[in-house]
Write a protein that binds this DNA or RNA. Structure first.
Length: 272
DNA sequence: AGTACGCCCTGGCCGC
DNA sequence: TGCGGCCAGGGCGTAC
């Protein structure tokens, strides 16, 4: 579900509530949530009593820094982190798999219908390396030259964009939208892109991710921010989920194909 | 090294 | 109304 813009919106929503606050009650009720490392009881015990020193994001992943260790949260396809103010009145439903309560009031609920998300602990110092997270596309360190390097080897440009070990945070929606804005077909061999195309794609990736954040994310179905509100960016999608409808630039019907097991949307006229 | 594919889950929607 | 089939924004393991 959530890609970089959605996760960043959630992070920004949560920072004022959780940073500097101590976790005083932990409940993890879904064993799948901690499947990568440890049991729910072990993770809960390790989190309990710690202060959140920082809430960081890398790609689509959130890190609740707790001192030596960080609680790593991946939202998968349908994961949500919802902030509930106050102590009472909060009724977790059957899709609420974890709740962190904070000293002084306020709770953070983790909901995830499809249970693809995860929550586990890693040593803070090595967490990013362990998870092999690629370059952060909105950082200065992401350059056209870096994108060029990421394009070596792999077959199709969309596959490169979705590879989290190369560039972090781009998922199916923003890959299709960035490729449309750059005028590049998702099926193109990455190594065939010229300097000018790389430059356009680099700019398009940044523009589309920033626009996604500005409009508080894309809510196709499940995505909600930390207050439970949908984002507005889906209304501004130019190709994603617009198959059969006229391209907003030229009127040609937007086409949908399957690429890498994922629905892929593009304009056959505007994207070459 | 790269890619195709199945799979982990649940729910919504469409057509019959 | 009910049911089967297909779809979904992610990512991992396995086979080739």
């Amino acid at each position: 579900m959530p890609e970089l813009p959605e996760v960043e919106v959630i992070r920004r929503d949560l920072v004022p509530h959780v940073e500097g606050r101590r976790i005083c009650v932990v409940s993890i009720t879904e064993p799948r949530l901690t499947r990568r490392r440890g049991t729910p009881a072990e993770v809960a015990a390790a989190v309990l009593g710690h202060r959140v020193t920082a809430l960081r994001r890398r790609g689509k992943i959130l890190f609740f820094d707790l001192g030596q260790e960080s609680l790593v949260v991946r939202l998968g396809m349908t994961g949500q982190l919802l902030w509930e103010e106050g102590r009472g009145g909060f009724a977790p439903d059957e899709h609420t798999h974890a709740v962190l309560s904070f000293e002084g009031g306020g709770r953070l609920a983790y909901r995830d219908t499809r249970k693809f998300g995860e929550m586990f602990l890693l040593p803070t110092a090595t967490a990013e390396r362990t998870l092999r997270i690629g370059v952060e596309p909105l950082d200065r360190g992401f350059t056209p030259q870096g994108l060029q390097r990421a394009c070596r080897g792999t077959r199709r440009i969309k596959t490169v964009l979705l590879d989290q070990t190369r560039i972090a945070g781009i998922g199916n929606i923003y890959a299709d939208e960035a490729l449309f804005r750059a005028g590049i077909r998702p099926t193109r061999r990455a190594s065939s892109l010229g300097r000018e195309e790389i430059r356009r794609l680099h700019a398009a990736i940044r523009r589309v991710l920033q626009a996604g954040i500005r409009h508080r994310g894309s809510s196709i179905s499940d995505y909600r921010d930390a207050c439970g509100r949908p984002g507005r960016f889906a209304a501004l999608h130019r190709v994603y989920h617009r198959h059969g409808k006229p391209c907003l630039a030229c009127g040609t019907p937007v086409r949908r194909i399957i690429l890498g097991q994922r629905g892929t949307h593009f304009c056959p006229t505007c994207q070459r």
